[in-house]
Design a binder for these strands. Structure first.
Lengths: 337, 337
DNA sequence: CTTGGCACTCAGAGGAGAAGAGTGCCAGAT
DNA sequence: ATCTGGCACTCTTCTCCTCTGAGTGCCAAG
């Protein structure tokens, strides 16, 4: 249906359009790439490509521009992910290795991605739902006031204040703390409710109100509210991308956590690269942008996702390479710490 | 030097320009405000105002536009802060009251400010340097690994992992924890170094390496690294403000923590409103924007700052009212929790 | 000090024309 | 069958022009 040369033409159009930002015509195409045929031939090929919906003309007497469908074909069949240079890899490695806690890892990652791709970077905090409990701490911080701290194996620390509404003895707290740790150490967060279902019955009657309160806060903060935190960076790169019209829509979309979540996407292939092009995106205001995302995590278990967002007219091979590389290194850092 | 009517004219120019976004001429001015004199008179006044640098013409045959100096005079002498409506105040109150931890308070505040002013909101996390210690906790989370948690009176929780490089007994930890709490409870963070100067000598010889390690981490995380965290919101409002040219510069500036810090400013009058207009800003890319900021904190002690950033052509009275009101309510929430 | 009148300036809108890029198609060459 | 050169055609875009109107500055009179 599409012979090799037509595919080559499509590839050339995408590459040229990405680098020049201007509709590309048959003549400039043969000038820049040595396709070995004349402009007229290319024109015939282009007519076919247009008929099939891979390219389009902004107006009659202009060159061609890839459509979303064209980019899709390009990404799926005509391009290979471009590995980073050794220098870039070293830079990533040392930059991330200097992070000293989870917040810092994430914030460095987002800056790194934005700089590397010169686009908007989006990084999701390591999810709680796929983490396990490393330690639970219960600390009195004032009369009738406790602090509950949960540390996960992904380095995330979750804390919540608890009002007890009655004085609580230090022994009761110590007892409960020991009990919680015994039950939860190494436990997947998703299994916490089951592991603690019978907790109230396991404590002396006098401590039951306390246990109940702590339990409800614990479940609420870890399970129900699995508020997936996301941060973005490099928004200034949007201005460079002259999306002009829709810039405002894009900025608005980027401020909504929910939209961002959906953007990064429930990965079909959890740890593989996902590319969403233009209208494939789930959000209205992002019809002219593409998202390149992937999962990352300690070891091979993906615990969260990260990616970049840019104009559909982006350098897909390079972007994909950068996203993949950053995800790998972050994974290593998380596994190591 | 400037009589009452000239001031009235300046005020009218500022108000009209802010609401219409267009240079204002002498005729439209007398039409809209009843100044009781003819356009020709106004023109004479305008000529004087222009000579003194309060207004300017974009080009010869256009109306006048306030200069930074003009806005400055307007803010200082010609306007009064506009209080919020009762409905708005109620909305703020309930919205903030539903926050359940410090992160949530801050994130709600930033959204609130952005929505209320329809500009970019900037909120600094309650600073550590002006807080006092409420509780210190030391928790073993693995062999040779401790977690140090410090809770401050502003609700901020700071945590750091500590590598001990040797096994440590539970008694040693408990001892150190008790000692730290005894020494630091209620202590201003800035006084922590003094309060702990002689710590190593106060513990048994066997525990000194541990004490030294913990001490260094503690000092580092609380004092030296007083990394002032800042979050922003409502960036989409920038697109509405058609700063066109400089939009990219502004977005870039907003991504640099350091710039943001300087923006919020070392307040001359710590808890009062600060207004920085156009070129008064310390940053290159923000020549066409103004910043309205104020301190906030639990009680009357300002612990951090918040504010908004928008085009110099902004509604100063309204913005100042909103910023002041939000700062007050946040202060109340912090004091109450 | 204020006012009406008047000449002057200049940005911006609108239109006409020329230039140029690129296309589609056709007939001939390979 | 496929490719190629030629050619007419279509639009956008740039430039140049004029015209309009808002707004000014100045002046002489109230």
């Amino acid at each position: 249906m599409l012979d090799d040369r037509k595919l080559a033409v499509l590839r050339a159009i995408v590459e040229d359009y990405v680098s020049t930002h201007e509709p590309v015509g048959s003549k400039t195409l043969v000038d820049r790439h040595n396709l070995g045929v004349s402009p007229a031939t290319i024109r015939n090929d282009m007519a076919v490509l247009e008929e099939q919906g891979y390219i389009a003309q902004p107006h009659t007497s202009a060159g061609r521009v890839p459509t979303d469908k064209g980019y899709r074909l390009f990404v799926d069949r005509l391009s290979t992910i471009k590995p980073l240079s050794a220098a870039e890899r070293r830079a990533i490695e040392t930059f991330l290795a200097n992070a000293y806690d989870l917040d810092d890892v994430v914030s460095r990652t987002v800056r790194l991605l934005a700089q590397l791709t010169r686009q908007v970077a989006v990084v999701q905090y390591p999810s709680l739902t796929r983490s396990s409990v490393r330690h639970v701490e219960l600390v009195p911080i004032a009369a009738q006031r406790l602090l509950l701290v949960v540390i996960t194996n992904t380095g995330r620390v979750e804390q919540r204040a608890i009002e007890t509404h009655e004085d609580v003895s230090d022994e009761a707290i110590a007892h409960l703390r020991a009990l919680l740790n015994a039950r939860l150490d190494g436990c997947w967060l998703t299994d916490v409710p089951d592991a603690l279902a019978d907790l109230p019955e396991q404590v002396p009657v006098g401590e039951r109100p306390l246990a109940a309160t702590v339990l409800s806060v614990l479940l609420e903060s870890l399970v129900e509210k699995h508020e997936e935190k996301i941060i973005i960076g490099g928004a200034a790169n949007l201005a460079r991308a002259d999306l002009s019209q829709s810039l405002r829509d894009v900025l608005e979309a980027l401020e909504e956590q929910v939209v961002l979540m959906r953007l990064l996407g429930e990965a079909e292939n959890p740890s593989g690269l996902t590319v969403r092009i233009g209208t494939e995106n789930p959000h209205e205001g992002l019809r002219t942008t593409s998202v390149v995302a992937t999962g990352y995590g300690a070891g091979d278990q993906a615990v969260a996702r990260l990616g970049v967002l840019g104009p559909t007219r982006m350098d897909y091979p390079g972007t994909m390479g950068a996203v993949r590389a950053v995800a790998r290194y972050v994974g290593q850092i998380l596994a190591g710490s």
